[in-house]
Nucleic acid binder design. Structure first.
Lengths: 109, 109
DNA sequence: AATTCTCATCGTATATTTACGATTGAATCG
DNA sequence: CGATTCAATCGTAAATATACGATGAGAATT
């Protein structure tokens, strides 16, 4: 998408954007929902649940790992993905903060 | 970015993804933060605050309008952007729902 | 009527995303 | 060891996102 000018924004704004990106694709939403709900977090199970190719799922998992929301544990011959509780709480706090304030509707009057 | 296969996901998953996209760019985060904090919601003010060209800001505003988070009122010779309270509450509820449950750490043990 | 002001849109260059088949790597199983 | 299984990575095609200059549209001002 062209280069986002991350340098001109605050670290926090960039972090919010990154965390939001984790949820900015329905497949990643589905992955996260699955991990929150099911006990199983094996990659192969996700591939079965999602109507996407294995390579695609793996790519989404990689992205979620990069953002930090997930981490994977090798559990031969499988790989097990878990939600990173620390980052999850960070996201929870950040989004909570954004949506906290009551809206000033005192605009454009 | 290549075609997202929206058809194979639920409406809710797609809606979550769309709402997350609103926050998935630091410029849009900055816009929303500004509108939440400041009383001014005039487009021109946003252009001054953001270190981006006017055309770029307008593009981000358009995207936020498409998602529904903002709506603009023409107030000649200016245009005034406001947060759409209904959609904002929808987003608040949706993100609240996602982050609500305590995490099952009982994974990969 | 001409100028000015504000904002949207067009056109475009470039980078990134999404998706998938094919291949590779690592580890277990026969 | 050879075969199989699981998952990451490579390579690639196509769509989309980001950013900006330039232009256009609409209204108010001169």
């Amino acid at each position: 998408m062209g280069v986002t000018k991350t340098q001109v924004f605050t670290d926090k704004q960039n972090r919010i954007a990154d965390l939001a990106k984790a949820l900015a694709h329905p497949a990643r939403v589905a992955i996260i929902q699955h991990l929150l709900k099911e006990k199983s977090c094996v990659c192969g199970d996700l591939v079965e649940v999602l109507p996407l190719a294995q390579a695609t799922v793996s790519q989404h998992l990689k992205e979620l790992k990069n953002i930090g929301i997930l981490h994977g544990e090798i559990n031969p011959p499988r790989v097990c993905y878990c939600i990173n509780e620390t980052v999850w709480q960070e996201a929870k706090a950040i989004f909570g903060e954004i949506f906290e304030p009551d809206i000033e509707v005192a605009c454009c009057k």
